[in-house]
Amino acid sequence: MTRAHEPRGTASDSLIVQIDQDNVLGVRHALQFQADQMQVALFDARKAVDQPPCGADPVSIEAAQAFDEKILQIIAVHEAHRLEIVGAVDRLRDAALEYGYTDQDIENSFARELPGIQQRHADALAARAASA
């Protein structure tokens, strides 16, 4: 058990108790990939804010403002979730370092694992699309 395993009162507490020297890098990489994907999606979602009204009438103007506020609320919820994942990634890095891995080991391992992670992600998207 490492210092990274000590409870912190965060969402990653339940995750970290399942981590050991053999799986720390793989779990970290999967979560890092997820956080990166979420960051891209949230960046794209922010582009949807400030939608123009459908017309110049007061109802259209108010509706556009309401939609923008709702979009920002949804983005904020997902950004908070992304930050929880980033916190878990950081915590897993700390655990990996305590297990004796170096930052270079972590980077090299991620570079090796990334194609497989990307393929699993693509396969999951394809399966989801096929079942729709």
Rank of each mutant, 00 (worst) to 15 (best):
residue 59 V to H: 06
residue 96 A to W: 06
residue 25 L to W: 01
residue 91 R to F: 01
residue 27 V to T: 15
residue 76 A to S: 15
residue 116 G to I: 04
residue 62 E to W: 02
residue 66 A to G: 01
residue 92 L to S: 05
residue 12 S to M: 07
residue 54 C to R: 14
residue 104 Q to I: 08
residue 83 L to C: 04
residue 116 G to K: 09
residue 103 D to T: 07
residue 17 V to H: 04
residue 53 P to W: 03
residue 83 L to E: 15
residue 81 H to V: 04
residue 115 P to M: 05
residue 69 E to L: 13
residue 46 R to D: 10
residue 98 E to I: 07
residue 30 A to P: 00
residue 7 P to K: 12
residue 3 R to M: 06
residue 111 A to L: 11
residue 62 E to S: 08
residue 128 R to K: 11
residue 4 A to Q: 02
residue 56 A to E: 12
residue 28 R to H: 11
residue 129 A to H: 09
residue 17 V to T: 13
residue 113 E to M: 08
residue 5 H to I: 03
residue 4 A to F: 03
residue 107 E to K: 13
residue 51 Q to I: 11
residue 129 A to C: 05
residue 81 H to I: 01
residue 90 D to T: 11
residue 54 C to S: 13
residue 24 V to W: 05
residue 64 A to K: 02
residue 34 Q to D: 06
residue 62 E to Q: 11
residue 110 F to L: 12
residue 59 V to M: 04
residue 74 I to W: 06
residue 15 L to E: 02
residue 120 R to N: 09
residue 78 H to L: 14
residue 121 H to M: 11
residue 22 D to F: 12
residue 132 A to N: 08
residue 37 Q to C: 10
residue 111 A to R: 15
residue 127 A to W: 00
residue 15 L to D: 03
residue 59 V to A: 11
residue 19 I to S: 02
residue 1 M to C: 08
residue 120 R to Q: 14
residue 11 A to N: 05
residue 104 Q to P: 00
residue 61 I to R: 13
residue 16 I to K: 01
residue 9 G to P: 01
residue 82 R to T: 06
residue 46 R to T: 05
residue 66 A to R: 09
residue 107 E to L: 11
residue 87 G to S: 12
residue 121 H to W: 15
residue 45 A to P: 01
residue 5 H to Y: 00
residue 54 C to N: 12
residue 60 S to V: 01
residue 74 I to S: 12
residue 131 S to V: 10
residue 7 P to I: 05
residue 99 Y to S: 03
residue 35 A to K: 07
residue 91 R to M: 03
residue 12 S to W: 15
residue 28 R to V: 09
residue 125 L to G: 05
residue 116 G to E: 06
residue 11 A to W: 12
residue 113 E to H: 12
residue 132 A to L: 15
residue 55 G to V: 01
residue 57 D to G: 11
residue 6 E to P: 00
residue 9 G to K: 04
residue 108 N to C: 01
residue 130 A to F: 00
residue 43 F to D: 14
residue 67 F to C: 01
residue 13 D to V: 08
residue 84 E to Q: 15
residue 35 A to E: 10
residue 12 S to D: 14
residue 5 H to C: 08
residue 63 A to I: 13
residue 115 P to L: 04
residue 8 R to P: 00
residue 62 E to R: 11
residue 106 I to P: 06
residue 83 L to T: 07
residue 17 V to E: 10
residue 43 F to E: 13
residue 47 K to E: 07
residue 111 A to V: 14
residue 53 P to K: 04
residue 72 L to Y: 04
residue 88 A to G: 08
residue 96 A to C: 07
residue 11 A to E: 11
residue 21 Q to Y: 00
residue 83 L to F: 06
residue 126 A to C: 02
residue 13 D to F: 09
residue 77 V to P: 00
residue 94 D to W: 01
residue 36 D to K: 13
residue 36 D to P: 00
residue 110 F to A: 09
residue 62 E to I: 00
residue 104 Q to N: 07
residue 72 L to D: 08
residue 86 V to A: 12
residue 90 D to S: 15
residue 60 S to R: 06
residue 91 R to K: 08
residue 119 Q to Y: 02
residue 114 L to P: 00
residue 11 A to K: 09
residue 127 A to C: 00
residue 95 A to Q: 02
residue 65 Q to R: 15
residue 41 A to S: 14
residue 10 T to S: 07
residue 30 A to W: 04
residue 83 L to N: 15
residue 123 D to V: 04
residue 77 V to F: 00
residue 109 S to E: 05
residue 43 F to G: 13
residue 52 P to A: 14
residue 94 D to H: 06
residue 82 R to I: 03
residue 70 K to C: 05
residue 118 Q to W: 00
